[in-house]
């Protein structure tokens, strides 16, 4: 007991000190290190040359160019994105992270840079399934761990009797839906559509039911995650985002990936 106690207190006390310390020194941003997952096509993925690509990687590059700062990209597992940000492994997260109150307690966000609802996907044989909490009672539903979809399932569908399975990556959940381990997946609309239409095993499955976007669970759009102390970085990125929105650069990147606006 006492070790964890001492450790927790030590970390807490030191964290307060460090927060004071970092607040004092405002630094000038010349290079921004950006963390992303690289497993969430078409928003972020790793290409065959092991480079990060995708909608939000292009967007981040455009913002950096606009603000005349250089950008470095770091791939990091989804579950580790926030801890690694807090540990200083990079300065901003561009990884389709929804702006939620829970996360706001720990990190700051830029303004939203796109909006995307969630939806249910099931096997074609189950196309008649209505994705209401009552109808899904007794079913096994999957989602990526730590996402807004995961939280929605845990808070609305699990109490109604569904079994919720959480996966480290979205792709592992997709694999289990295709093999019949899952009855359904709740996931980001554009990511799920991308899988259904473009992958080899996506043909197994189809969308059922409506879009889900209740802000109480699904947040206020997707933004870049930042450390709370870096107010100057938030100002810089918000400013850059406004500029690429105004210049039409955002629309150009949007059109490269989607035939409609996702802002």
């Amino acid at each position: 007991m006492s070790i964890a106690n001492v450790l927790a207190r030590l970390v807490f006390a030191a964290a307060a000190l460090a927060a004071l310390a970092s607040g004092a020194a405002a630094k000038e941003w010349k290079t921004i290190r950006i963390g992303s997952e690289g497993a969430y096509p078409p928003f972020n993925l790793i290409d065959s040359n092991r480079q990060l690509q995708g909608f939000e990687i292009d967007l981040a590059k455009a913002i950096c160019a606009e603000e005349k700062v250089s950008c470095e990209f770091v791939a990091q597992d989804w579950e580790g994105l926030i801890p690694a940000l807090l540990a200083g492994k990079y300065d901003a997260i561009f990884a389709s992270m929804s702006i939620t109150d829970e996360r706001r307690k720990v990190i700051a966000f830029t303004d939203k840079y796109y909006t995307s609802p969630s939806l249910f996907v099931t096997a074609r044989e189950n196309a008649s399934l209505q994705p209401t909490p009552e109808a899904m009672s007794g079913k096994t539903i999957g989602a990526q761990t730590g996402t807004v979809s995961a939280r929605y399932l845990q808070e609305v569908y699990a109490p109604a009797g569904a079994e919720v399975k959480l996966y480290v990556t979205q792709d592992e959940a997709n694999l289990d839906l295709a093999s019949g381990r899952l009855d359904a997946i709740l996931g980001d609309k554009f990511v799920m559509l991308n899988w259904l239409e473009k992958s080899a095993d996506g043909g197994c499955c189809q969308v059922v039911g409506p879009d889900f976007s209740d802000p109480k669970y699904f947040g206020d759009g997707i933004g870049a995650g930042l450390r709370k102390g870096d107010a100057d970085l938030k100002a810089l990125l918000d400013n850059g985002l406004k500029a690429v929105r105004a210049s039409g650069e955002y629309d150009r990147i949007n059109a490269k990936y989607f035939p409609f606006s996702i802002y």
């Binding site: 030191a14 690694a84 492994k89």
Partner: peptide, 15 residues
């Protein structure tokens, strides 16, 4: 170690 050590080390340094 992966998530805790850098934070602990940073805080200890500041401390």
């Amino acid at each position: 170690v992966y998530f805790g050590a850098p934070r602990l080390a940073t805080h200890l340094l500041a401390f």
